[in-house]
Write a protein that binds this DNA or RNA. Sequence first.
DNA 1: ATATTTGAAGAATTTTATTCTGTATTAGAA
DNA 2: TTCTAATACAGAATAAAATTCTTCAAATAT
Lengths: 150, 150
Amino acid sequence: MEQIDDIDLQLLNILHDNSKYTVKELAKMVNLSASPVFERIKRLENSGYIKKYIALLDAEKLNRGFIVFCNIKLKQHDRNIGNQFVSDIMKIEEVVECYNISGDYDFLMKVSAKDMKHYQDFVFNKLGSVESIGSTQSTFVMSEIKNLYG
Amino acid sequence: MEQIDDIDLQLLNILHDNSKYTVKELAKMVNLSASPVFERIKRLENSGYIKKYIALLDAEKLNRGFIVFCNIKLKQHDRNIGNQFVSDIMKIEEVVECYNISGDYDFLMKVSAKDMKHYQDFVFNKLGSVESIGSTQSTFVMSEIKNLYG
DNA sequence: ATATTTGAAGAATTTTATTCTGTATTAGAA
DNA sequence: TTCTAATACAGAATAAAATTCTTCAAATAT
């Protein structure tokens, strides 16, 4: 796919932080008129540099401010168990992110709960019914220092 | 702040996944006309349920597809060292997220690099010059399974 | 040097956001 | 219960934004 120049990069950085600017405002920021900026953004969308636009919500207000990183070890390491785990995890709303990782554990999940009680319930009742899981290890977030997506 | 009802929740869930719907489209989805939907969204923004709107970018295309979770232990556990670490880390662009955590390590960072070479350079040159760091432990992401923000 | 392509500006148009007005419903006060 | 006030909605009117179109200038290829 095509090249992207410095102005494209500026636009991407701006929109990554705030996608609500109007094209007129963006145009002023990058010293162009509205139409080329509009065209550039469409090009960045169509070429996949911009994947989507989303609203960031306040986790605390929505009773999801208790964050835990949960490490998972599978029972066995065959493809069936792995696929089963993935498909089970996709359905659990508290699991906000999940990665297949190197090291002592197989997966690292970011879990978003209301509080410790909710998390405990999540571990027992939700993870507890995922057959493919061998063991888990929880790391609790005490405070969020930096989050470019939060 | 005020209560939030089921329709508000529907709107939040929709916008969390795609903030580009028009109010007319949203209105149809929640079976209302445009004006109350518009007012509800403004209310959700002003009350802080919606924090901001952002564009999600393709990390791979932007040479940031190599993800590592990097655990950090501080040299010492006093407030000065901690503050120094936080302020240093905030300036490093490869650090996309950072949390103060429970357990063996003090902080967990999500790092976004181009490739292993870039990550190595990050560890040596960027982390290497953060005085407050005692030790690090890297966990490499082999694949992303789920990410509500990606 | 000339033709062709590219990217931009600015105007014109279409679509969307936003405001406004009126009405029905509901909660609370009398 | 009855009246009043507040709330939430629909639909129209308006303002602002997105989107398209035309033209022009600069860069590149021929």
